[in-house]
């Protein structure tokens, strides 16, 4: 109809509106990603222009590298632990925040805010709080008599992993809360009240009434968060740089180190392709779940 004014048909106008999006997506997302996939099959030293075809050499290299497998294992551990904790805390806090008590908006604000805090800021604060000699965490634990000796939060492999997980849980639990809370607020009150009249206790009520209502949103949230947590780079890099040793590497940090410290762009790209495969699996799962829900 607007065609009358601008001399364009609706279809043309539709394409015109879509054009900026398509152009930006092609030039700055699809092209670089495709370029990266191509690089996975080439050998490239960054100081030299030569690009030599390497077949599957890059993949062979990373698959033979024990650090790659360690990074993959650690990535799975860090993702799984983060997701489980985020989901548990997220649902619990959302239930709390769904209570109709006075001043709840203040609590809501304070509990959701960590999601907005820049990763750099959290990493700085973590490095300060968990500093073994000067940090408030060790001092408090010692003060409370819980520990005798300083815990080396960031230079002991197990504690370093725990610290990165804590950081991730702190920052992203609010995300789960937001999604769950949005769903909780849409649950008809009558459902719960009916159950209360039936004399059901709080736990069975949650289990049989609330949880089934949350199932759909939780599935989506968990799939999304799993993919994104698996891909995270800054949370780990800024806190531990993957250390001590390579004990907090995940695949993103591994790829970054291959590219920048080892100057192996091909190996980094190959790692990226492996990550893409993981993402693809996650997306297929997601779309299938989405379809199930729509059906």
């Amino acid at each position: 109809m607007i065609g009358r004014h601008a001399g364009l048909s609706d279809r043309q106008l539709g394409v015109l509106f879509l054009l900026p999006f398509v152009a930006v997506a092609c030039a700055f997302i699809i092209y670089p990603a495709a370029e990266s996939v191509r690089l996975a099959f080439y050998s490239k030293l960054p100081f030299r222009p030569a690009l030599t075809f390497a077949g599957l050499d890059n993949f062979r290299y990373i698959f033979e590298d024990p650090v790659f497998w360690a990074a993959a294992r650690q990535a799975v551990l860090w993702t799984a632990a983060s997701i489980v904790l985020q989901t548990l805390f997220g649902v619990a806090i959302a239930l709390l925040l769904n209570e109709a008590v006075r001043g709840i908006n203040v609590f809501r604000g304070l509990l959701l805010f960590p999601y907005m805090v820049p990763t750099v800021v959290i990493a700085l604060i973590w490095r300060w709080m968990f500093n073994p000699e000067m940090g408030v965490v060790n001092a408090s634990l010692k003060g409370a008599g819980l520990i005798q000796r300083d815990i080396y939060w960031l230079s002991d492999p197990a504690w370093a992993m725990a610290s990165t997980i804590m950081l991730n849980v702190w920052k992203f639990t609010p995300f789960v809360v937001i999604c769950v809370l949005a769903r909780l607020q849409a649950i008809p009150l009558e459902l719960a009240e009916a159950a209360q009249v039936d004399g059901a206790g709080a736990w069975p009520r949650f289990l049989h009434i609330t949880l089934p209502q949350l199932k759909a949103v939780l599935v989506v949230v968990i799939v999304f968060r799993t993919v994104w947590t698996f891909n995270k780079f800054e949370e780990i890099y800024l806190l531990t740089r993957g250390g001590p040793g390579t004990s907090t590497f995940n695949l993103a940090v591994y790829a970054f180190e291959q590219a920048t410290a080892n100057l192996k762009l091909g190996a980094a790209a190959a790692t990226g392709v492996v990550m893409l495969a993981f993402l693809f699996a996650g997306s297929v799962l997601y779309l299938r779940l989405l379809r199930q829900e729509e059906a």
Binding site: P132, E133, Y152, L154, S155, P244, G245
Partner: peptide, 21 residues
């Protein structure tokens, strides 16, 4: 050495000396 040394880089060594540890 300080137990944290396995994670140390340049600055940490400076601090360890300057702060008398």
């Amino acid at each position: 050495m300080p137990p944290g040394a396995v994670g140390y880089t340049f600055l940490d060594v400076v601090d360890s000396m300057a702060k008398g540890q």
